[in-house]
Each structure stands twice: as C-alpha cells, then as structure tokens.
Design a binder for these strands. Structure first.
Lengths: 247, 247
DNA sequence: AATTAAATTTCGTAA
DNA sequence: TTACGAAGTTTAATT
C-alpha cells in the first residue's frame, strides 16, 4: 500500500492467492478505486447479445462508475466490457477469483473467471480536469455562424437545431434570393448516409412549409465519396467543402 | 520480475524514478508486452482533431499492436487514445516520464507527460482464443435464410449482399407474386437512418432493373421508433418484427 | 426511460 | 488504400 502527498493511493499484489486478490478487488471497489487484474481467465457475457471467450491472458479494469473492460493484447476496443452503471462483485469459487459486473435495463451480465492471477491493483486518485477538444462538428458550425459567407455569399442563418418532423436541422437559413436552406454539417469526409440524412430534412421541411418553392439542401464537409456525390446530384442537393477549424 | 509456468511474465515497479519507469516501458514495448502506467499526467493529442487534458490521475495502456489508451476513473471509453498501428516511445524529459504514440495516414500524435508515476507494469502472456459472439445481424440473416417463411409466406431469397449502385443489399429475393424484394436487417430497434438506408437500396434497384413494377422494401428488426414508422409509411416500405436468435 | 445523431467513433470486409 | 456499413457500438442532449 502506498499513499502519496496528493492523496493518490495504490495497492498491488503479485501472484496473490485468489482470496487475497478478492480482498484487494473488494476493498478497491469499496473505496471507489480503479481496480485492475491481469491473468489467465475465461469471460462470459449475456445481455443484448451473448458471448464466450476461452482461456487467455487478459487485462481487466473495473471503474468506480460501474464500467468494466476486458482487454487482450490487441485492438483499441475491449474484447468484452460493461457500460457505466453496473454493480461490480468479486468472489472466490472453487479456489478461483471471479469478477462479475451486472446491470439492468437492459439486463446484462459479465463474468470473468481467473485460472491464474498474475497481478491485482487498486488505484485511487483525483481527476478534476476535463478534456478540451477542438475540431468537432460544433466547431465547424461556429465557423459558419461567425462568417456565413464561407458557405456562400449572402447566406443568412436563421436558426440552429431547427426542428422538423424528421429531426433537427444543423443550420437553417435563407439565401440571397430568400429561399429556405437546410445545411447538414459533417466534420469529415462523408458517404451516402449523410446525403440521405440531408434528404430527410429537406423533404420534411418542404412539407412543413408546404411552400411551392423547393428547399435547398447543402451538405458541408471536407469532402464526399463518389457514390455520395452521385446521390447528391440525383436528389438535387448541393455540396460545399469546409473543414472544422484546426485550433 | 515474475515468470509463470505458462510463459506469462510480469514486471512492476511502485513509485519508480522517471528513468526506471522509462526502462520498464521501453523493455515492455520491446518484448511486445501490454504496458500500463498509473499516475498524474497531462495529455496532448493532435490529429483528426486536437485536444488537451490538464493534470489528473489516469491509467495509460500501451498495446503491442500500437494501440494506446488513456483512462480516467469514469466512462467506458478512454478520454484519449490512439488506434492500433502506432509506434510507441518512452523518454525522460526534464526528469519526467513522457509516453508518445505516433502514426501516419492520418498523421496523429498522442503525448502523455507524467508529473508523478505511481506504478508501471509490463504484462506478457498468450491469448490464442477468439471471442464467440451470438446475436448479431449475421445470425438474424441465417435465421431468415434457413426458414424464409419467418419473413413472409412464400418468400424466396435469391442473393445476399446483392450489389446495387447504392451499395449491397442484405437479402434480395422475390415474393409469392414474383415481385422483387429488398430486405434490410437490423439486430436492434431502428430509427430513421435505417429507413433511409432501405430507401436508397429500393430506389437503386428500381433504376437498376428499370422495371415498371415497384420493388418492395422490407425492414426487419425487433422494433421501430415512431418517426421511423412514419417514414416507412411515407416511403411505401414495410416492416417485419424479428429478433436475432438468442443462442 | 426513450429518441436522435455525433464520434479523434472502431472494426471488418471488399474492391 | 479507400469505401461502406455493422456494432453488445458509446456518449451527449433533448424530450
């Protein structure tokens, strides 16, 4: 057990007995630590789908918010997991450590059985700061609202998140001729799905306004794929190349 | 350092000096171990977007496939990360441990600077087994192909992944009357996006066949949202409620 | 609790 | 390498 000046505390055991491992895990969950276990284990999941993973060396993390992560040596994504909101539990059964994370709505259960525990740790610390991220779709929207002419000359934004029967439109406005314009924003290169999305909004707004004059639809993104480009043409929609600001 | 009978090996230091931590990390990367570092750190990311995270206690994992994960005590997702394919590097700068993961195409860089390292570990093990998952869209497709009558009486599947100018159709077939049918499968409750997707395929196929008889479009999913249901009606598409098999 | 769409989505497959 | 769509997607916002 180690206590640091800043309140950070860690507890670690190498090759613990299953009972000792269970104690560290249980105590860690109790004090709202990040708990990690590395060893050979099997994993069973039952919930929205179901899965089984035979024995292998994996790294398991239990978070105090109820999230659980099982990582192999490959992939950015955990091979098995449980979202925040679960209740963690650690028990010994037949001389083996078992970790279980359960939630309801939907009912889901993750069960990790360790044949061998190489290391178990509990990490307590504080993290006050949140991520500052730049380059999102929201940043792209700000860029256009601050200077609508980057979209086209004399474009006038009238609303953001304007509601239609098909959902909320990113930017709603009118052009130099006073025609209604629906703008759909994407922070990166788009495919057919983005075109369909814009199409839904344009359709919905045309019905909503029941105006005879057609509503213009403009897709704003860094670039489009060939198929998306063809779809835009078919549906009479437009494209403007813009990127979210880099900083 | 601990070596197990099954070839699993772990190496861990508590409150190491930055230089000692760097050595463990560098050696771990070298031997293709999963490397973890817990401590107070700042994180900078620059790539598809860019972000900064001020000091806090976090858990960092470097995988031998090049993936990097920075986890706080909250959330299933890492607060910062790098996908597989990166090159990891560990250095000491001004007496602090710095981890860096870099890749190209696209150019991306993740930099973690530790003010304090509480624990550093390197885990080597083997994992031969892959996840066996049941309840996917593929399982739903198998269910329909094995007994097409679950979709509707006298439905005849003719192809899966049939190509159209709008993309591949999940199941293509014909009904009792010999009309062309496009089936789009979803393993869970669907919203407007799935309807748009089906619509794209039906449109494309109607042009492709340039037949006068309309192509039927059937969305297969456990259920649909209200908005999606309305969209289905508007577009003359159909819905059949089916779930992927549970086991 | 349910809906909708964004995400540094990731991941797998096919061209 | 790019494109396209699935995913036990997760996450955030709004109803």
């Amino acid at each position: 057990m180690t206590d640091s000046a800043d309140g950070t505390r860690t507890e670690t055991l190498r090759e613990p007995t299953p009972a000792a491992a269970r104690d560290i895990v249980a105590r860690g969950i109790d004090r709202e630590a990040i708990v990690t276990v590395y060893g050979r284990c099997t994993v069973d999941y039952e919930g929205r789908a179901s899965s089984r993973l035979e024995a292998g060396a994996r790294h398991v993390m239990l978070k105090p918010d109820g999230a659980a992560l099982v990582h192999t040596d490959e992939g950015q994504q955990p091979v098995n997991w449980q979202p925040p909101g679960c209740t963690h539990d650690a028990v010994c059964e037949d001389g083996e450590l078992i970790l279980e994370s359960v939630r309801s709505t939907p009912d889901e259960r993750l069960r990790v059985r360790f044949r061998e525990v190489l290391q178990v740790s509990a990490f307590s610390g504080t993290d006050e700061n949140e991520l500052a991220l730049v380059g999102t779709e929201e940043d792209l929207r700000q860029r256009i609202l601050e200077d609508p002419s980057v979209l086209e000359a004399e474009f006038t934004p009238l609303a953001t998140e304007r509601e239609t029967p098909a959902g909320a439109v990113d930017i709603y406005g009118e052009d130099a001729a006073g025609r209604a314009v629906v703008v759909e924003l994407k922070r990166r290169r788009v495919g057919p799905d983005a075109v369909s999305q814009l199409r839904r909004y344009v359709d919905a707004l045309e019905r909503d306004l029941h105006a005879d004059a057609a509503v213009r639809g403009i897709l704003v993104a860094p670039s489009v794929t060939d198929r998306a480009s063809r779809l835009l043409t078919e549906h009479g929609l437009e494209f403007v190349s813009l990127e979210p600001p880099a900083e």
